[in-house]
Design a protein around this nucleic acid. Structure first.
Lengths: 126, 126
DNA sequence: TAGTCATTATTACACTTGTAATCCATGACT
DNA sequence: AGTCATGGATTACAAGTGTAATAATGACTA
């Protein structure tokens, strides 16, 4: 079983995305990666990294004088955890109602729809 | 266009569900409706109602001595707003990646999948 | 060797959220 | 008319978040 992923706040998610994209990274590298994406002072980013570390969502390598940070959970794992609690909260735990609502209104490309259809087919036939 | 829905916290959502289910209701009626669902003291529920009111997510009728509360936004509107910001945050704004991930793993019944397929068909053919 | 600079560590501070309790006013009851 | 219960208004208080600034420390430089 996957252990429980700690809560990751909105700002913290931005940091995590950078680390999932490429890690380990130093605080400065994280700062650079966020150029243009988030408008935070380096100190703020550092704080977020520290909090993630304290929460055990991020690990730190302190071998070098300049630390490097890396995720302790896979992105998919965290996405699933978030999505599950989100669906419970907002849609009363039933995935379908959300899918319906969003597939109805959301702009999905032809290819996207094709892909979804294939997934459905595969599941149905199995 | 729908005005921006204010943020609704996790606990507040529970209250909203009750009001969407049936409103207007008095604070006491809300308390009763939450029997067995959430384990809050009546005072807590009252606080949540007041906060929702202050946030303008809930309206109050003060004609009677005992107030009644009612939602100022439709449930769907709020669900959409939440879902949109959720997807942006967690899936980088692309609905599809989430759908794929969840359709792959989630237990959807035959009927659910049939319904989804029909929606896809309708959209594709259009 | 002392000063400077880059990093890390510590501290700050307001706002939101979870979770209530206390205070106050008014109608109902005696 | 005084009292009490009930609902509304105000207050509480800690944890989490957003957003940093300041202090301490170790490494390099003049």
């Amino acid at each position: 079983m996957s252990k429980n992923v700690p809560n990751i706040s909105e700002s913290e998610w931005e940091i995590m995305k950078v680390l999932w994209d490429n890690s380990p990274r130093t605080a400065n590298e994280v700062v650079s990666s966020l150029q243009g994406k988030a408008d935070w002072k380096p100190k703020t980013i550092r704080t977020l990294l520290d909090r993630l570390t304290k929460k055990k969502v991020v690990g730190v390598n302190k071998e070098q004088r300049i630390y490097t940070f890396y995720p302790l959970y896979a992105e998919e794992e965290c996405q699933r955890a978030e999505t599950r609690s989100f669906i419970d909260r907002i849609y009363g735990g039933t995935m379908k109602s959300m899918l319906v609502q969003f597939m109805e209104e959301e702009a999905l490309s032809e290819e996207d729809m094709e892909e979804l259809r294939q997934i459905l087919d595969k599941k149905t036939s199995k």
